[in-house]
Write a protein that binds this DNA or RNA. Structure first.
Ligand code: NAD
Ligand code: NAD
Lengths: 207, 207
DNA sequence: TTAACAATGTGAAATAATTAACATTTTTCT
DNA sequence: AGAAAAATGTTAATTATTTCACATTGTTAA
């Protein structure tokens, strides 16, 4: 049960998001094919993932929504929660900060950073904005383990280095500029143009 | 050469992004290991992808940057370019629109839509904003083939349906609510929480 | 009671993606 | 010229992920 496939981790997160909605609507049980429908995947895939985390549903009734939510939490969340910061509070940084501030997950944005003095000292969606020079201090004080970068591309390498030096453990880079980090830092990069070009390609080649 | 792996398509888009920067810097040739370094992957992977699109480099000199950029374009772009729209011009919608307006790719945002009357009629980064009731008309008039959804989650299913009815071919859903579309529409969904939870998981389990 | 049904759970097969291994070729060095 | 080095290109092996196929078992209905 220790080595879950990367893809399974991603799907578990998605299952939970969907399950939380189901739970809010009062659903007690859910079938694998219902989850599958929501996620646009096959029911077998869902059952396999659930099997991998060692949960077992009730024959004919499906899975207990609440139990499954809790178990997924035990697998992917950290007991104590993880603090995150956003660097670069422009359009994208605000979109992300706003999006998170609504949720109550184990992940919380504990600080945002920017260079613009007009932004420093303000609050964004209730989160304090600090100057990037304070990155080392605030990251330690607030026990921040993950950084989200939404600065202009050309500043990304420098900010990545600052975050790593400050002791960050994981980095989510939304700038279009790939950055280098030491091996022990988990790095994830995402670029919308890639997604969109992929959609365009498959549209072009009619799937 | 016809059936390229999905992952290869994604990487080709990323290679091109990096290659364009290299080209701008005046680089004429590039080695597979240099591309690999930028993308955090192995040189073999790079060579394999390039092999799949039928390009061949020069031994000892690597790949011609300009030629490779052009070839990737021939593979993933459409000759005539593809028009895209953004629905929901809030923080995220603006971030995306702004991001694209800078680039000159074959993909261009040809319209944005919103419900808020205060936004309708304005321009965002030079793109006209229309009311969602105009979706059918504008999508036809401006030959828009791909839609990007950045509306509140609860509105996503309705907007998806409108876009599909209007004749969209591909859909990129950034809302946290998975939507259903007919089989012949290419759908891609992305949620930051999933990415972040994945980072958190692998940070927790020290890779 | 029994048959049909509708679900889960899972070993095994199939498919997709990555990596290893190495032949080949050009360049450089002695 | 010949040897060593440094690249590419590609087959084969490996690994990762998905799907198939079906045993199992509650539930419903005749
Ligand atoms: N990954 C994606 O899909 C995607 C989508 C849209 C935008 N982007 C990228 O995200 C980044 C932000 O986009 P945006 O639309 O929010 O831009 P923006 O200009 O609105 O915001 C950038 C913010 O970063 C701040 N900043 C500038 N230099 C900084 C530094 N050295 N340290 C800290 N903060 C700094 C600016 O003051 C500003 O607040 C850009 O790199 C953009 O290309 C990525
Ligand atoms: N995928 C991600 O990673 C990610 C990140 C951040 C936010 N989000 C999601 O993206 C969406 C937008 O986020 P945001 O921060 O930009 O929110 P926002 O509130 O700033 O913007 C939403 C915009 O949609 C408009 N709108 C509302 N209903 C509409 C409708 N029926 N038709 C058209 N437009 C409508 C609003 O007027 C507003 O302009 C939300 O669903 C949010 O949860 C996703």
């Amino acid at each position: 049960m220790k080595n879950l496939p990367h893809k399974t981790i991603e799907r578990l997160s998605q299952y939970r998001r969907a399950l939380l909605l189901c739970h809010a609507k009062g659903m007690v049980h859910i079938y694998s094919h219902e989850i599958a429908k929501i996620q646009h995947i096959t029911p077998v895939q869902v059952r396999r993932d659930i099997m991998l985390i060692g949960y077992t549903g009730t024959l004919r009734k499906g899975y207990n929504v609440k139990e499954l939510i809790d178990l997924i939490g035990q697998i992917i969340d950290s007991e104590e929660g993880i603090n995150v910061c956003v660097v670069g509070i422009g359009n994208l940084g605000r979109a992300i900060t706003n999006y998170f501030s609504g949720k109550r997950t184990k992940l919380s944005i504990a600080a945002v950073f920017d260079v613009e003095l007009s932004k420093v000292g303000k609050k964004y969606y209730r989160i304090d904005c600090f100057h990037i020079d304070d990155i080392p201090r605030i990251i330690k004080e607030r026990k921040i383990e993950i950084g989200i970068m939404t600065v202009p591309g050309e500043d990304a390498p420098a900010i990545a280095e600052m975050l790593v030096k400050a002791g960050i453990k994981g980095l989510l880079n939304y700038t279009p500029k790939p950055v280098n980090v030491p091996d022990d830092i988990y790095l994830e990069e995402y670029d919308m143009i890639t997604s969109l070009e992929k959609v365009a390609f498959f549209v072009k080649t009619h799937h």
